[in-house]
Structure formats: C-alpha cells, structure tokens
C-alpha cells in the first residue's frame, strides 16, 4: 500500500468537501450553492454509473441520459396518477430502467465499437421522441412534479439538507457497489472482456451475458439518479434525455478519468462548476466550453485522475 498519493489526497479533500457542504451553506447563508451541489451530486451518480460500463466494461454508451428520463418519468407519472409514496416510485423507477437497459442492451450488444456508440445514441433518441409524444404527461413541455416522493416520515425530500444527504448517500452507496463489483469475479470477467473479448470467450466465458448484466446494473443505477433528479427539479421533460445530456455524462467521465472509482465524481464537479462559472461570465459559455473539450481530448490523457497520478510520479 502506498503511503501517500496526490490523487488520493485530492479525492479525500473533495469527498470531505461534499460531506461538509451543507454546513458551509448554513453558516454562509448561501442556499444556492446547496441547490447547485445537489444537482452535481445527482449527475455525479449518473456519471459513476456510466463509468461502470464505459470505464470498466469498455462499452461506450452514448445513450445514458435515457435512464435519467425513465427514472424521472417513473416518479413524475406515478405522482400525476396519485401514487406519491417513494417506496413505490423509486422501485418502479429502478425496475423500468432495468427493463429498458435489458432490451436495449440485448440489441446493442450484438454490435461493437462505433456501431455500439451510434445505436445506444439512436435508442436514447427514440426514448426522447416517445416522451415527447406522451400528450397525457405534458409531451414536449414536460411534466411538473407537484409533490416530491413521500417516504412517510423516514426522510423529508422537501428539506434541502436532508435531500442533499440522501443524494450523497446514494452516490456513496453506488460507488461502494461499483467498487465491490469491479473487484468481484464478475467484475474481473467484465474487465477482461474489455481487454480481449476473444480470449475471454476462448476460455469459456459467455461474453455477451456478462456484458449485458453489467449494462443492466449500470442502467438501473442511472435510473436512481433520474428519480432523484426529478425530485430535485420538481419537473421532468424529454430534454433530460436529449442526446447532448448523454454527451455531458460522457464528458464528465472522461474529464475525471475513465475507469477510476472517483474520477466521474471529480469530473462531474469540475464540469458542472466550470459550466456554472462560464455561464456567469458570458451568455455564450458553450463557445468556450466546446473548444475546451477539444483540447481536453487532444492533450488530457486519462483525465484529472491521470493528471494527478502523473503529478505523483513526477
């Protein structure tokens, strides 16, 4: 075990910061920062789930935002129909995401490489159009969630601090789960498949089945993020599954460091803070963000985690 490394130190500082943030918000009276970071934590959860298949599994899904929408619509539609209990809404959100992932995964995994990227993208776009066509649930305009999920006294989602800690707990839970998965026999097989699928198949592993299970786990996790996101914004619309949102999630993963446990969290924090910061300077923030992405791709190998790792060695 290494005694000290820069990336571990930075990760620890970031996690401590996330845990202590409500305290800072309370002391400084800055409520906005808590709202901002609730969103960051939820999207970090989505990015972490994407990292499971992209970083560890080598499956480049460009349609991950679909689960954000499915999770969100499960909450929104149930709330609209009068089912306000979170004990029903959340399991339904997870189950719906899992089923969608199972169908899409079974089809998409018949292909690889660029085909896989394009197909996951196309299916997510299909989900987007279906949501736009749901006239009963707002169609294009989206659906307002008038009442947040009700956990009957266990936790109050309308309380900003409690909701923030719920999201943070979900994030830590998911990362713990990913850590367990990655180091399990199952996780090792999936990582082996990323390196060399033919070889893994030759020694007798059913490649597609392992990848599909991994794909479904990742989708389910992202569905959780979707359910939280709908509660956070009190609103869900087809726009959450628009393909640029999937792109954002990919960027977070790459920016933080693909295939590292805390990289996606770091990526989400940096990306969303940067977006917030640039949009305060200029209305045309994407004019800077776009070329910045290009530069990150061209010169930033391994993302922030990779950079920190190099600092450590150099």
């Amino acid at each position: 075990m290494k005694t000290f490394s820069v990336s571990k130190a930075v990760t620890a500082v970031m996690l401590a910061g996330l845990v202590l943030l409500p305290l800072y918000s309370y002391l400084s009276g800055n409520i906005f920062i808590l709202t901002l970071f609730t969103r960051i934590v939820i999207l970090a959860l989505a990015a972490a789930s994407l990292n499971l298949i992209m970083g560890f599994g080598g499956m480049m899904s460009f349609g991950h935002a679909a689960y954000l929408g499915i999770g969100g619509y499960a909450v929104g539609m149930l709330a609209q129909e009068g089912v306000g209990s979170g004990f029903i809404q959340f399991p339904v959100a997870l189950a719906a995401s899992a089923i969608y992932a199972l169908v899409i995964g079974a089809l998409s995994l018949r292909t690889r490489g660029v085909y896989f990227i394009m197909i996951t993208l196309a299916f997510a776009q299909m989900a987007y159009y279906v949501a736009s066509g749901l006239a009963r649930y707002g169609g294009d305009d989206g659906l307002t969630v008038y009442k947040r999920s009700d956990f009957s006294g266990l936790i109050n989602l309308s309380n900003r601090t409690q909701f923030y800690y719920l999201c943070l707990a979900c994030l830590f839970g998911v990362i713990f789960l990913i850590w367990r998965i990655v180091n399990s026999r199952f996780g090792l097989v999936v990582q082996g498949l990323r390196s060399n699928e033919q070889r893994m198949q030759a020694i007798g592993f059913p490649a597609k089945r392992y990848q599909l299970v991994c794909f479904v786990i990742s989708g389910t996790m992202c569905g959780l993020a979707g359910a939280l996101l709908a509660n956070n914004t009190d609103f869900v619309s087809p726009a959450v599954m628009y393909w640029t949102r999937s792109g954002d999630l990919m960027v977070m993963v790459i920016l933080g460091g693909m295939g590292t446990l805390f990289g996606p969290v770091m990526g989400a924090v940096v990306y969303l803070l940067l977006e917030e910061f640039l949009s305060q300077i200029t209305e045309y923030w994407a004019l800077i963000m776009g070329p910045l992405l290009l530069l990150i791709v061209l010169f930033g190998r391994g993302g922030i985690m990779g950079l920190l790792g190099r600092l450590n060695r150099g």
Binding site: F62, T244, L293, L294, V297
Partner: peptide, 9 residues
C-alpha cells in the same frame, strides 16, 4: 465523439 461533441457546442 467527445472532440466533435465539443465542436457541436
């Protein structure tokens, strides 16, 4: 994908 995504933005 990422670089050209940046170009779209």
């Amino acid at each position: 994908v990422l670089a050209t995504f940046g170009l779209i933005l």
